[in-house]
Design a protein around this nucleic acid. Structure first.
Lengths: 205, 205
DNA sequence: AACTTATATGAATAAAAGTTCATATTGTCA
DNA sequence: TGACAATATGAACTTTTATTCATATAAGTT
């Protein structure tokens, strides 16, 4: 392989972007394994050679796309609720936060589904997802600790992981697989469960 | 393709079983995509032609293996705790059940991981997993309803799904990915969360 | 305009892997 | 033992797809 090119002119920046956009939509639509390089460049309207001018191979393209996507996912969750940290966390705050998590999956449920599938069989993909999990768990943990006086949780570190896993998987089931049960009922039960867990018996409940 | 053979003699029953066993171990060890048919029959000590005498293709082999595996998984969870339904469910019963779930992953964490990965990208695999989810959720729900008088849960149907998702994902994270946090701490927090959710304020708590 | 650098092209290459089928061997039963 | 059914074999076929690289075109610079 010849060395990767760093885009310098506008047209090459465009070309690179076109490839990423085309891949993103195709991956979401036809799956990652179901999409080959030819289709990507065809949809992008560029030649196959351009692909390998700007990306080492298909895998690094995917990793870069995933990092971008998870950054957007993370912001979609926490941006709308960034003031909860400051206030005292209440039942409604928890529900709002969980609703924000569910809403974040609307960016591209299919791309998320496809890449999430890979995390269990591909260590590189998993690494990117672990970075994401860590920052989400850290956020939850700091929420727990900034409300420490009202909380009855004995092990906030483990509790944060458990809460994160619970919310994540309910969202995944609802988003990726679908359920007989309406999303809102799941969100309600999830909110109840977490609220009661965190603040059961608390005076300010 | 010529029609599939139905094993009639002992040796063909053996051949078929050898192929399934070899595939099971290779899939766990090298991944499903990382294992090709040649390797499977080589490890099984039979010829490639035999493979296609007894299995339509690689996919149907996998589906059959997965059904078998999930039957074992299901039994591993519920067999050890089948009397909990009868007794009144207490804090310890919940922990025992959750520990039983975690233990069930010891059958073959790697095979489980590999197939679980596929459920989000392969509808056929997903169908088998959904059958599994349904019977697990049904079990949980009937536990909730047989202890109805003591429960404070407003929506047992949705609660069963939420509880199932929470336990499943914590087990998956601990089993497939690993965590800084010791398994037992996660189990403890999970048990607490579920117990409090189900019985908060209950007299018999 | 001449020269250099950046960018675009796509036919050709190369490697992998699933599946078939004509042939050979083994078992069964009369 | 002979004949038919069941089973086993593996070279050959087919298809698919990622990646390379020699060549052509466009942009920037002096």
């Amino acid at each position: 392989m010849t060395a990767l090119r760093t885009p310098k002119q506008q047209r090459s920046i465009q070309t690179r972007k076109r490839i990423m956009d085309a891949a993103f939509h195709l991956y979401a639509k036809k799956g990652i394994h179901g999409t080959n390089s030819k289709e990507i460049v065809e949809k992008a309207g560029v030649a196959i050679g351009s692909f390998y001018s700007y990306f080492k191979n298909k895998k690094t393209l995917l990793l870069e796309m995933l990092e971008d996507y998870l950054d957007r996912h993370y912001l979609a969750i926490w941006k709308p609720v960034e003031d909860i940290t400051i206030n005292e966390m209440g039942r409604d705050d928890i529900k709002v936060l969980i609703e924000s998590v569910f809403a974040a999956y609307d960016i591209s449920p299919e791309f998320h589904r496809q890449t999430h599938a890979l995390r269990y069989s591909d260590p590189d993909i998993n690494r990117v997802y672990e970075r994401e999990r860590n920052r989400e768990v850290t956020q939850i943990r700091s929420l727990l600790e900034s409300n420490k006086s009202r909380m009855r949780v004995t092990d906030p570190e483990a509790a944060a992981v458990v809460i994160h896993n619970a919310v994540e998987n309910v969202a995944h089931t609802a988003t990726f697989i679908g359920s007989q049960i309406e999303k809102q009922r799941l969100i309600d039960q999830l909110s109840d469960m977490i609220f009661i867990f965190l603040l059961h018996g608390s005076r300010s409940a």
